[in-house]
């Protein structure tokens, strides 16, 4: 479980998060939503210490993350940033980089490392593409490859910043289904999404942010039908029921 308490964070000359406190549960998908510039990415980057916290604490299973070394942190929390490079390497090689935190100098892979990589490729359905170059793959396959790398990192928590951006709708749903499988297998997922329909379908908990603060948090239905979400985005949301579940309609 990740507990954030009174977190103030940002850049040297600009504080972005102003006293964020929230608890994100184990083995669930927590989705952070909010308008552009509301501090969603800053929150994720602060958790993995890409940004220094100005004050406040972040605990993972009641242990302060600030006390962990960079390598120890990488064994506990994986982070998939919004923009990713497409290096001229094979799928398998990229996934193997997920084992980097576990390698000691001179970085030789053990049998166990190779087994974990094999399993990550299987889980993401990439075994057949293991020898393919990353730049020859479609956007969806590349995204899955990065997810496989994160799986090979074998962490309790996975953070993802807008992981479905640039994917077509089919690939978005396939990707999110895979994320659901991971959460069901015990991983704690924290990700940023913009599509309310997908939030409704996949989120166990939704955190709504605005101007560096958390406005509201709770179940997707509760947050998406609240007055707060309408005020934050200046829109009107409608939830409606059909045979295959709840849906969300958004109007200006």
């Amino acid at each position: 479980m990740i507990s954030i308490s009174e977190l103030y964070a940002g850049y040297e000359d600009k504080e972005i998060l102003h006293g964020v406190s929230e608890t994100l549960p184990d083995g669930k998908i927590s989705v952070i939503i909010g308008p552009n510039g509301s501090g969603k990415s800053t929150l994720l980057r602060s958790i993995v210490r890409l940004l220094p916290e100005i004050s406040g604490t972040i605990l993972l299973n009641e242990k302060p993350l600030a006390e962990l070394s960079r390598q120890e942190l990488a064994k506990k929390i994986a982070y998939l940033p919004q923009s990713r490079n497409v290096p001229d390497i094979t799928v398998e090689r990229l996934v193997m980089h997920g084992r980097f935190p576990y390698l000691s100098y001179p970085r030789r892979y053990s049998k166990e490392d190779r087994e974990i990589v094999k399993k990550a490729l299987e889980m993401t359905g990439l075994t057949e593409l293991a020898g393919s170059k990353l730049e020859d793959l479609s956007g969806g396959q590349r995204q899955k490859t990065y997810l496989a790398m994160v799986l090979a990192q074998d962490t309790e928590v996975i953070l993802m910043d807008e992981p479905t951006t640039w994917l077509d709708i089919r690939n978005q749903l396939e990707f999110l289904k895979l994320v659901r499988t991971l959460a069901d297998s015990g991983k704690t997922i924290i990700m940023i999404l913009h599509d309310f329909e997908q939030v409704l379908q996949f989120a166990d908990k939704v955190v709504l942010m605005e101007k560096g603060k958390i406005v509201m948090a709770g179940e997707a239905v509760k947050v998406l039908s609240s007055d707060e979400i309408n005020q934050v985005y200046n829109i009107k949301t409608f939830l409606y029921d059909t045979e295959d579940g709840l849906h969300c309609y958004v109007k200006m």
Partner: peptide
């Protein structure tokens, strides 16, 4: 990329 490398420790 720096962010990915950083998150790998």
């Amino acid at each position: 990329g720096d962010d990915t490398a950083h998150s790998l420790g």
